[in-house]
Nucleic acid binder design. Structure first.
Lengths: 184, 184
DNA sequence: CTCTACATTAACTGATCTGTTAATATTTTA
DNA sequence: TAAAATATTAACAGATCAGTTAATGTAGAG
């Protein structure tokens, strides 16, 4: 399988898992929708779990790249970028195919903390927290670690509420809290 | 089936779904673990979905009752009760069997907004938001609706971070934000 | 005690699950 | 062009999925 076909398989699998859930999406459907035969899929991924892990790796890369870039585009100071994270989130919430955070959902479906999928989902959140902490440090705000964690709580809360309410209002509501936090 | 056996069935099913997830928990396992034959289960619940809905009704009742009572026990002013919600959450996070919010997980596994399970999960969050708004009003704080939604965002964010990180720290982190919100 | 109503067991649908096997293309390389 | 490596199809495991059927057991009421 060529590199590009493999990438396409992962990309299309991502959409299926994101839309339908992990357990609810069978490998027969993956084969049918990606156009790659099940035999070929299992030649490159030993198990469904390995395919899911590859999907999560792609999602992690895509999402963080997009978010970090968007934050930089929307503001040019570290503090401004932290605030504009919520503007970027709002754009995401307003997308037609917004279905919540794939990592929260992966963690919800694979709850065993020893499970590779659970661990990888959490790793994504740790990378986000690290990035936020770095920006907080650049903004020369006190208590960087704690502040970064608080911003992460706001982000996750806004995502969950947006996904469950099918509205984007939580982005602005979280942003105004973040404004208070960063002003202090 | 007696009323008590039916309640026991729902109670035990709740634990199974909470621990293993909805799709990942088969009805054969439910029958085995509850000690109620599959035939009997299907005499009282036409589908697995109806059983899940009954489980979510129980969870909604149990969880909100517990949370509201605990908030009242921990503080005697409306503002104090809003703050102590996060102390109650911390107690929950520290329980051995804490596995995140069942409604967030139900919403994640049944994403279709027209699905009864998704609607019921969201209804739980609306009831919580209403209760928070009422307390905010009693505390005579301005912008009650908006403030209640912000507190809900903090609550959901704290739960997600606690579940994914397997720690309870997010409770205090969220509480300190809530303290700022309510002081303003 | 007998009839009735309900509960239970266990086997059984037919579909779907993850993953495999064997034979048949198709492509890549020499 | 010939040989080697890879991809495909399609059928097949064996398990499990939600849900049903039919026969058996067991209770309470008359």
């Amino acid at each position: 399988m060529s590199q590009s076909k493999r990438a396409e398989l992962i990309r299309k699998s991502l959409l299926l898992f994101y839309r339908n859930g992990f357990h609810a999406t069978g490998m027969d459907l993956v084969a049918k929708e990606t156009g790659v035969s099940k035999t070929s899929i299992y030649k490159h991924f030993r198990t469904k779990e390995e395919l899911i892990l590859a999907v999560l790796r792609l999602r992690d890369e895509n999402f963080r790249n997009w978010l970090y870039r968007r934050m930089e585009e929307l503001a040019d100071t570290p503090k401004g970028q932290l605030l504009s994270m919520f503007d970027a989130l709002e754009e995401w919430f307003l997308e037609d195919n917004f279905q919540g955070c794939m990592f929260i959902k992966a963690s919800a479906e694979f709850q065993d903390r020893d499970h590779a999928i659970n661990a990888q989902a959490y790793a994504h959140k740790l990378l986000l927290a690290d990035h936020l902490e770095e920006l907080v440090l650049q903004a020369q705000l006190p208590d960087a670690r704690n502040l970064a964690r608080q911003l992460l709580i706001l982000k996750e809360g806004a995502i969950v509420v947006a996904a469950m309410s099918h509205t984007a209002a939580s982005a602005k509501e979280a942003k105004s809290i973040a404004g208070m936090l960063l002003a202090a």
